[in-house]
Every structure is written in C-alpha cells, then in structure tokens.
Simulated scan of single mutants.
Amino acid sequence: MKKYLSLFRIRLINSVQYRAVTFGAVASNVVWVLLELMMYAALYKSAEKALPMSFPQICSYVWVKRIVMGMLVVVAYDGEIYSVIHSGSVAYELVRPMDIYGKWYFQAAANRVTSTMVSCIPVLVIAMILPEPYGLRPPMSALQTLAFFVSVVLALGIVVAFAMLMFITLFYTIAQRGVKIIVAATTSFLSGGMIPLTFFPERVLAILKYLPFSSMQSTPLLIYSGNITGTEILNGIAVQIIWMMILLVIGKVAMNYAIKHVVVQGG
C-alpha cells in the first residue's frame, strides 16, 4: 500500500498549492447552496401537501451534498487518465511494476478526496454558523454519524469503480466527450445529485434504491439528514457493499480484456 499512499500524498500536496482555486471553489459552493435553498424554500412555502422531507432535512441534505460532491461524482478530476488513454501513453503504464487497474483506481480516489479536503472545511464552518433552518444540523446520534462516514467511504468506492468502467470504455472510442456527458448526466440525476430520490414516485424509487446510482450519493445523504433510520440504514449499506464488490469484479475483468486487445499507434 505504500505506493498508493504516496500517490495520495502527492495529489494532496498538488491540490493545496493553488489557493486561489480553493477560494473560488469555496465561494462557488456556498453561493450555489444558497441559491438551491432559496428554490426549496419557495417550493415548501407553496406546497399544498406534505413533502417527503422536512425543510431542515432538505437543508442538511443540500449542504452535505455540496461538501462531499467533489468526492462522489463519477466524472471529475481525472484529466491525466483521459490523456493517457487518448494519447497512447497507456503503453508506458503497462510496463510499470504496478497493476494498472489498482493504480488508476487509487489515483482517481485520491483526486476526489483531495479536492474535497481542501474546500470542505470552510464550507462546513459556514454551514454550521448559519441560523436555523438554513444551516447544517449535526447528526442526531453517534451511531448516525458513524453510519454516515461508513456510507460515504463505500460511496466513494462505488463511484471510483464506476468511473473505472468509464475509463475502460474510452479504449474503444475516439472521443471521450460524449461518454463523459452521458455518464455525468445519468449518474447525477439517478444518484440524487440534482434532487433527492425521495421526491421521485414510489414505483420509480422502489427500483432506483437497488441500483448502484443511489449508493453513490443518495444513501449517505439520506442517512445524514435523518430521512432513513434503523434497518433502512443497514439495508442501504448492505446494498452499497454488494454493488462495490460487483463493480470491482466487472471492472477488473473488463480491464484485463481491454489491455489484451489494446493497440497503440506510432513509435
């Protein structure tokens, strides 16, 4: 694990060097959250019937979503991996004494974690000092807090495993833009990144909660906001574990197949 930890440390150092970028990310996150909360405030004020989440719950959901979003998005800060595949430099990756799937997996995970670490604390402080009900409420119990952190780690594993499948598809395409747009739109909508899945019709939600997309963002966010409790939390975490194992196996098999058939042009 030393080589993977070294890779993580290098990514973190690179991320904290650009202070202006960090400040811009914090400012844009706060402004975006405030705009989103204004939209929900208007929705709750004009709603004629009870909505599936209380307004304080939706406020916590939106704040936590924005804090961890950089870590739980499939299409993110992986420009180096895209470039390696597109330019043919993957040939150099294949001769390194390191499994290419493991290297890219931990590199993608490090990119997401470090981008979140450098901006989450200022956003968290601002969210905690805002008055009720617009601020971020702490979890109701220590068990809820523990379940949230476990779910976030599993969600990160699922997001990166799904991103690895996207990387593998780029071996078979000329342009990466189309794949990234489709994946970004699909995963963001079906994972609760745009609106909470609890606002979906019950029949649709009954299917979505067992798909890998809900395990990427919806499960940890609903745990923190208190919208799911007790056995629902255990069921959600169990679904996350199952999907992470499935995606890792599929990704590893697909990567081995792609590597055996990859052709690099030029000298």
Rank of each mutant, 00 (worst) to 15 (best):
M1N: 10
M1P: 13
K3P: 04
Y4T: 05
L5C: 08
L5K: 08
L5V: 13
S6K: 10
L12S: 08
L12I: 10
S15T: 13
S15V: 09
Y18V: 13
R19T: 12
N29V: 07
N29W: 00
V30E: 03
L35V: 14
L35I: 14
M38H: 09
Y40V: 04
L43M: 14
Y44L: 09
K45N: 15
S46Y: 12
A47S: 15
K49P: 00
P52H: 12
M53H: 08
F55V: 11
C59N: 08
C59G: 09
W63L: 10
V64C: 13
V64T: 10
K65P: 01
K65N: 13
V68A: 10
V68G: 03
M71H: 04
V75E: 05
V75T: 09
E80F: 08
E80W: 08
I85L: 11
H86D: 03
H86C: 00
S87R: 09
V90W: 08
V90R: 05
R96K: 15
M98Y: 10
D99P: 03
I100F: 12
K103C: 09
W104Q: 13
Y105N: 01
F106H: 13
A108Q: 07
A108M: 13
A110K: 02
I121A: 11
I121G: 02
I126C: 00
A127D: 00
M128V: 05
I129W: 01
L130H: 04
L130E: 02
L136S: 02
R137E: 06
M140N: 09
L143N: 07
L146P: 01
F148H: 07
F149D: 07
V152P: 02
L154Y: 04
G157S: 12
I158D: 01
V160G: 10
F162K: 05
A163S: 15
A163G: 14
M164Q: 14
M166Y: 07
F167L: 04
F171P: 02
I174T: 15
Q176M: 11
Q176N: 13
R177L: 13
V179D: 05
K180E: 15
I182A: 15
V183C: 12
T187V: 15
F189N: 13
L190H: 06
S191F: 13
G192I: 12
I195D: 05
T198F: 13
E202V: 15
E202R: 15
E202L: 14
E202S: 15
R203Q: 15
I207H: 12
K209W: 08
Y210E: 07
P212D: 02
F213H: 03
S215E: 11
M216W: 02
S218G: 07
P220E: 01
P220F: 01
L221I: 02
L222D: 06
I223V: 10
Y224F: 14
S225N: 06
S225P: 04
S225C: 14
G226V: 03
G226N: 04
I228P: 02
T229W: 03
T229P: 00
T231R: 07
E232M: 09
N235Y: 09
A238H: 03
A238T: 12
V239G: 01
V239Y: 06
I246F: 05
L248C: 06
V249N: 00
G251Q: 00
A254L: 12
N256Y: 00
I259K: 06
I259G: 01
I259A: 02
I259Y: 01
V262D: 01
